[in-house]
């Protein structure tokens, strides 16, 4: 049996005898379940519409609840029906546009661009020397030995320097999050 069964059935039985307060608690609790159920299956606007459709269905069809049967099964029957109804509506209106695939991948592109911009902002806060080292080692993919030879530093100095720079960039990001 579903954990909330007894509580919900009690509220529903009270609601059928005209107890508005129990009914309100029931509808509020059910709204949370319904939001979860529909938002996993529909887009946000349609999900909220479906939640309201369900609440209205519960209200106008409440006479069909038989207190000897599980309330959760009754509720699930209605939610499932409204979900199928919503799918049917979407299909009939042919609301799924042909450019769905480009839309999907455009999102990915934006994220990569955002990440690049963030890294550049963080690098700009480092000293020029450290910035150069991090770019060469981490972004361009040069080896520590190559960078050391080019800059005239020892390999371990390059390693330590890059490590500290990355650490300070990390602190910057975390600190920024805390301030937000």
């Amino acid at each position: 049996m579903i954990a909330q069964e007894t509580q919900y059935r009690d509220w529903m039985v009270a609601a059928l005898s005209g107890d508005g307060a129990s009914y309100r608690m029931l509808l509020t609790a059910l709204t949370r379940h319904l939001r979860g159920y529909f938002s996993r299956r529909l887009d946000p606007a349609a999900a909220e519409d479906a939640v309201q459709e369900c609440l209205i269905a519960i209200h106008t069809r409440r006479a069909t609840y038989d207190p000897t049967l599980p309330f959760t099964a009754w509720m699930h029957g209605i939610a499932r029906y409204k979900l199928i109804d919503e799918y049917r509506r979407v299909k009939r209106r042919a609301l799924v546009p042909l450019d769905a695939a480009p839309d999907l991948f455009a999102q990915d592109e934006t994220e990569a661009a955002t990440a690049r911009r963030d890294v550049n902002l963080l690098l700009a806060r480092l000293s020029d020397a450290k910035q150069g080292l991090v770019r060469q080692v981490k972004l361009d993919g040069d080896s520590i030995a190559e960078v050391a030879a080019r800059s005239g530093m020892s390999e371990s100095a390059v390693k330590v320097s890059v490590h500290r720079a990355i650490k300070s960039m990390g602190d910057e990001v975390r600190g920024g999050d805390e301030n937000r």
């Binding site: 005209g18 508005g20 009914y23 309100r24 509808l27 309201q52």
Partner: peptide
């Protein structure tokens, strides 16, 4: 209509079935 308002409307005018 907001969902909370809907709940209020439905439960305020509740009559026994």
């Amino acid at each position: 209509m907001k969902t909370d308002d809907l709940i209020a409307t439905l439960s305020d005018g509740l009559t026994p079935t």
